[in-house]
Simulated assay, not measured.
Amino acid sequence: MRGLLRSVILLAALTGGGYAGLRAWPIGEDASRITLDGDARRGAYLARAAGCVACHTDTAAQGPAMAGGAPLDTPFGSFVPPNITPDFTHGIGGWSKYDLARALREGISPEGQPYYPAFPFEFYAGFSDQDIADLWAALATVPPVAETRGENDMRFPFSMRSGLKLWRATALLEAESAPVLGRSDDWNRGRELVEGAAHCGACHTGRGLLGGLDADSFGGNDDLPGGSAAPSIRAADLKEDGWTASALAYALETGITPSGDVFGGSMAEVVEQGTSFLDEADRRAIATYLLDAAPVPSDPDALAQLR
C-alpha cells in the first residue's frame, strides 16, 4: 500500500503542474573540492570491490574495459551502464574529481541531474575523499574508448528524469557501513565492504514498487534485471545451506560452492570481475560479517562518534 501511494504521488506530480517545479528542484550538497593525490593501485582495488569493472564492461560481447556494460532490463525500462573511460566525448574525460565524488556519493551527474538507482550510489555514500582521489587516479589509467554501448530506454513516466527527485525523497535508503563498537576489526571490515563498496544488498535485497530497496536487508530478490534471482544471504539462511566462513571466502575467490556447484549468472560475473581480485583477508572479512551480521548492542553515544 505504501509503495502504491508513492506511485500515485509520483504520477500526479509528473502529469500535473508540479513537473516544472521538479525540474527546478535542486538536489545534492555543495561538497568541498578534492585536492588529494590518488593512489591508482588502491583505486583499482576499490574499483574491483565496488563492481565498477563488472558493471561497466560488456564481457559477454568482449567489449573494451569500462567502455559500457550490457543492458539491464527492468520493469522500468532498460538501463545501459555508461562508458567510464577517459574519453572526452563518450566517457568521463571531461569530469573532475568533484564530479566523480558527486556521482558516487550522491547519484548526481555533472549537469546536476539525478542518476537512476540502477547505479548503486547509495552504497557509495561513505566513500572518503581519499577513496574518490584513488578511484580517479585509477580511472585515468584506463585506455579511452570512443564508443558508447547505447542509451537508456525507459518507460513513461520513468523516462522523465526529474521525477527521480521525488523518488530520492521517498524511496532512497543510504547504506550504513560505519564500524560498530564491540566487534572485531575483521567483522567491521566486512561490514564496510558488504554494506558499502561491494553493495551486496543491491542484488540480495528486494525492492518496492518504485525500485527502492526494502528496509529488511539481504532477504533475497526474485526480480533482478533480466529475470534472474538472488538468494537470501542472511546469516541463518547461509548456515542452513551449509555455508561456513571458510567456504564462503573460498567461493568468493573461485565461484565454487560447498556442494561442488559453481555460481551462475550475475554472481559468476561478480566473482570473476570483482571478488576474485580481493585479497584473502577481505574475502574472509566479508564472510565473517555475512555469517554474523546482527550488530552487538553498543553505547549509542560512543557509536555516534564513529559515524
Rank of each mutant, 00 (worst) to 15 (best):
A137N: 13
A138Y: 09
I132M: 04
G77K: 02
A198W: 06
M154K: 08
L104P: 04
P144E: 07
L181Y: 09
D186R: 11
T170E: 11
L164M: 14
L104G: 06
D87P: 10
L172P: 08
L173A: 14
V180H: 12
G93I: 00
P86G: 03
R161Y: 15
G150F: 11
P71Y: 13
V180K: 04
P110T: 00
A171C: 14
L173K: 10
P157Y: 03
D186N: 11
G94C: 01
T141S: 05
F121W: 06
T170L: 15
L135Y: 02
G112K: 02
G112I: 03
I92N: 07
F158G: 01
G201C: 07
T141P: 03
L193E: 05
I108R: 07
T74V: 02
S159M: 09
E195W: 00
A140L: 13
E192W: 09
A103N: 12
V142F: 09
G150C: 01
F76R: 00
R191V: 04
A138W: 03
A202P: 06
A133H: 01
K97C: 10
R189Y: 12
P71K: 01
R183V: 15
L72S: 08
E151Q: 06
S162G: 13
P157S: 10
E111L: 11
Q130I: 07
A138M: 02
